[in-house]
Design a protein around this nucleic acid. Structure first.
Length: 549
RNA sequence: GGCCCCUUGGUCAAGCGGUUAAGACAUCGCCCUUUCACGGCGGAGACAUGGGUUCGAUUCCCGUAGGGGUCACCA
């Protein structure tokens, strides 16, 4: 009886690892190409931190002519959620970040290095586990979860380091005969890695982001195959990233402390270890303290949130890129119209500490992104958003020709308007351009300086009857408002008024504000001339007459 | 608690032994202006702390404090 017999007893039907080594050869890519991945578990929605990792991974892969793939880590059936994979795939699509390889729907995938769903790779992991057992580098462990609990408690009360290692690793030193006998007696078991590490020795690791980090060696005999036959994260990571020929493992920094284990696993498996880049999490300010953005407490932790709110996906990506490489915003200022893909992203320039999520800044980027869009694009995107999240707005947008005029107001010039940060802002910013919404709302006219009803009536009447002409150009139009102001006893120039406030009731700005409020029931709007162009004479007259009544 | 990482204005951060310590968001003021945004100009605002090393530390070393991560048959 030897390890080989033991291995055959445990995994009689799996293939030799050479089969897989040949099936998934080294990739033929240009020098320096980075192969990396996004490897979430389908436990619900995609976290903003996950999107951040994916964006970084995809960016470096793209930049180097490498590969970005999506692997689903569903080895824990207990945590699995219905439609989890679909949710991930769709979220990536929403941000225009579909992977080069891997899952593209719940059941479909692309690329030659699959399957990309771990639950479908069971026999692959088992082949490698068998190989490890043959080598005497892994062994069956018959300890029950209760045994494990007992060990842990003993260690805790004795105040020594918890875990399955050294003298605590009871099954580690069983003879092959004993193991075989237990198996033949039908005892349950799992497979553990036989760690060659020693806690009193250090290993050096150079992380692409964190830099040099020293750790004690791993000496824990961690589980590699669970009772359900599926691998644990660690083992799946080693096998998959080797077989998928990953060059860079870009993942959340909660994994940093597992690096000694992972390096050891790669080494014992005879694999070349990938480079690691551990990304700091995105944090949130919580009563003065910092904590990770939490799925349960923070709606903005889910990428769905941004879709629902209508934050443009480009704004989210630019914001994230900004956190990732702060030189991005300088680059963006120098290259306002360049595609963000052109930015020279540097993995090793990423911050080693976690950034606080700044919604205000995100929305500021949203404003800029939207301000640069054409009326047509604004129309299309807000309509798409509205169809899903705001049917009232979608109805307003049915008349495309008119909507385009509304969105065209103060758009396309050198200093475009920046009043929309997200699509959910659109409705309130255009409502007054729609008669049914304008009249439908309880009419309130927040007049400012000029609030005397008689004066207002006179201004409106005079304006409609004497001054307003829809064919006027902007200069003439405003000259006429000045003339109106003067006729009514207001200063035609603001400066005149300021110089001699006592001589006038108020100034032309106040007159135009009165007209603005009468026309839109708002004190602040985009350029009134442009608004009036869109409204047209009949509606202007009607609105001002109703404002009087 | 053990191990590991981090600490520049309110926030994101540049800087890597000698700088008037950048920039962006936010904030305040002024200008532009028919409103509000935009834009322009300007202001306020920071190297956690104590020791070293050095001619000289925000930059290097050690300690302290604070923050974060991790110690599962979860990922």
């Amino acid at each position: 009886m030897d390890y080989k017999d033991l291995a055959n007893l445990i995994f009689p039907d799996v293939k030799e690892i050479s089969y897989y080594e040949e099936k998934y050869p080294e990739r033929n890519l240009p020098e320096g190409a980075i192969v990396t991945r996004f490897a979430p578990s389908p436990t619900g929605f995609v976290h903003i931190g996950g999107l951040y990792q994916a964006l970084v991974a995809r960016t470096v892969a793209q930049k180097t002519g490498g590969v970005f793939f999506l692997r689903v880590e569903d080895t824990d059936q207990k945590r699995e959620v219905e439609n989890g994979v679909t949710g991930i795939v769709n979220s990536l699509k929403d941000f225009d970040m579909a992977p080069d390889e891997g899952m593209i729907s719940d059941t479909e995938e692309i690329g030659n290095y699959g399957p990309f769903k771990q639950s479908l790779r069971k026999e692959i992991y088992q082949a490698y586990a068998k190989y490890m057992i043959e080598q005497g580098k892994a062994y069956p462990c018959f300890c029950t979860p209760e045994d494990g609990e007992e060990i842990r408690q003993k260690q805790e009360s004795a105040k020594i380091r918890p875990g399955y290692y050294g003298v605590w690793a009871k099954c580690r030193n069983l003879t092959v005969e004993e193991m075989v006998e237990k198996i033949q007696n039908g005892e349950n078991y799992i497979i553990r890695f036989k760690s060659p590490g020693r806690e009193d020795r250090k290993i050096k690791h150079k992380d692409v982001i964190k830099g040099n980090v020293d750790f004690p060696e791993n000496d824990l005999d961690i589980v590699i195959i669970k009772a359900d036959g599926l691998p644990t994260y660690h083992f799946a990571h080693a096998v998959d990233d080797h077989l998928m020929r990953t060059t860079h493992v870009i993942r959340s920094d909660e994994w940093l402390s597992s690096v000694p284990l992972h390096l050891q696993l790669f080494h014992e498996l005879g694999f070349k270890a990938p480079k690691y880049a551990h990304i700091s999490p995105i944090m949130k300010n919580d009563n003065g303290g910092k904590r990770k953005l939490s799925k349960r407490k923070d709606p903005e932790a889910a990428v769905e949130y941004y879709k629902q709110e209508g934050v443009p996906s480009d704004a989210v990506k630019e914001y994230l890129l900004n956190i990732a490489n702060s030189t991005f915003e300088n680059w963006r200022r120098a290259n306002p119209d360049a595609k963000m893909e052109e930015f020279d992203f540097q993995l090793n320039k990423m911050s080693v500490s976690g950034a606080l999520f700044d919604m205000v800044k995100l929305l500021d980027i949203g404003k800029t992104v939207i301000s640069k869009m054409t009326a047509e694009a604004v129309y299309e995107e807000s309509l798409e958003w509205a169809k899903e999240f705001d049917t009232e707005l979608a109805e307003m947008l049915v008349d495309k020709e008119y909507a385009l005029k509304v969105f065209g107001i103060e758009r396309g010039n050198k200093k475009p308007r920046k009043d929309i940060a997200k699509w959910s802002d659109v409705k309130e910013n255009i409502e007054y351009m729609y008669d049914d919404k304008f009249y439908g709302k309880a009419q309130e006219y927040p007049y400012q300086v000029i609030s005397d009803k008689e004066d207002l009536e006179k201004i409106f009447k005079l304006y409609i009857e004497k001054y307003y002409d829809e064919n006027d150009d902007k200069q003439t139009w405003f000259d006429k408002i000045k003339a109106l102001a003067v006729e009514m006893g207001y200063a035609g120039e603001v400066k005149e008024f300021k110089a001699n406030p006592g001589m006038y009731k108020a100034h032309v700005g106040d007159v135009s504000t009165a007209i603005r409020v009468g026309l839109t029931s708002r004190t602040n709007t985009p350029d009134m001339y442009e608004i009036m162009q869109v409204l047209g004479k009949d509606r202007i007259v009607e609105r001002l007459e109703k404002a009087i009544g």
